[in-house]
Write a protein that binds this DNA or RNA. Sequence first.
DNA 1: TGTACATCAGTGAACGCGCGTTCACTGATGTAC
DNA 2: TGTACATCAGTGAACGCGCGTTCACTGATGTAC
Lengths: 196, 196
Amino acid sequence: MNAKQERKERSHQTILESAGRLLRSRGIVGARVADVMQGAGLTVGGFYAHFASKDELVSEVLHRLGAEYRERLFTNIDEKPPGDRVTVVLKRYLSAAHRDASDQGCPFPSIVGEVATTAPEQREALGEEIGALIERLASLMPQRPGHKTRTLAIGLVALMIGGLSLSRALRGTALSDEVIHACRLLGVAATQGLDL
Amino acid sequence: MNAKQERKERSHQTILESAGRLLRSRGIVGARVADVMQGAGLTVGGFYAHFASKDELVSEVLHRLGAEYRERLFTNIDEKPPGDRVTVVLKRYLSAAHRDASDQGCPFPSIVGEVATTAPEQREALGEEIGALIERLASLMPQRPGHKTRTLAIGLVALMIGGLSLSRALRGTALSDEVIHACRLLGVAATQGLDL
DNA sequence: TGTACATCAGTGAACGCGCGTTCACTGATGTAC
DNA sequence: TGTACATCAGTGAACGCGCGTTCACTGATGTAC
């Protein structure tokens, strides 16, 4: 690979990272192409040497962030006792730190609402990544036949995304902390005590 | 009140109704002033005889829809056996019909994401309405001291909003129905079987 | 009751601005001989 | 190795479009005498 190609590849990564930050903190519409490029230390015009359109960028970033964040959420989870694993994930996800660092966390709370009325390409990307998250979460649960672990995992994912979205929308109020706390409790209780 | 004033009042209501539909189906940014006016059978220019700005409209509509939908969600709930009430609410909210009729249902799933980065005025409106919803839901629960009914209610509201948002974002896929189903089960189980 | 004037909800075109995208150009890197 | 030409990532200005907002105007309704 050329020095030229290497340099382009590096720019490409930088643009993706900048887009990742903006997409998570401001949503799809809020992540302007010019801002993405500025965040990558470049100017607007160069964008189209890397992506055919903003839509294409968004789809690519969604996939990338989905995989990347999943990796992070489940880091070292195998070192925990099997019975604690889901609880640990819930605590990582439903935390004040995660709420406040929206540009580094899970991409889904920032974009679920928008994707409902967006290009089908992006809804597909979301579907695949959400599906992967659900399966990964379900895989942490002790396999008890008759206990619908997939159902529980889906419910927990909705609770996590809903809780974080709501908590962010209410940031600055007392309710915001309450939401995180309540969702965490509900999730943990559901994991430990429920037959679904 | 004049015939003139009456006519203006009627227009005002029609505009609010049109805005309510658009806000729920397309979100805040997606609800264009021109479209709102067209939906009310009027032209753009007249808008500013009724509202100082789009922001003002949005805040007013948020409050109105919050109260209106709450009313609808809890309709005739006192006629149900006390132990079934929360379950009935969950079934009403987490349903395919509600998912598909986004322009008539709960306003929150469509706007939580956007409100996180919007005018504080609108975040206040959201906070008040979410607070009212939580309290109304908690009031349906048998008062058992030591059982944190408020915490449960908050968790359920996050689960409901998260579940519906996610289900809408995945509309058209098999996962979409699964999400509704799973959230309903989780919510019902949490209500009936959990000590928080 | 009539008549002359005032009010103001609503019209429709225009304005300004921000956005995604395009495009002529530059200059560093790569290729051919 | 040097030299002449080709490539193409990136620049910066311009373009077109859609949006919220403004504004001169209209015509139905209300008010004063």
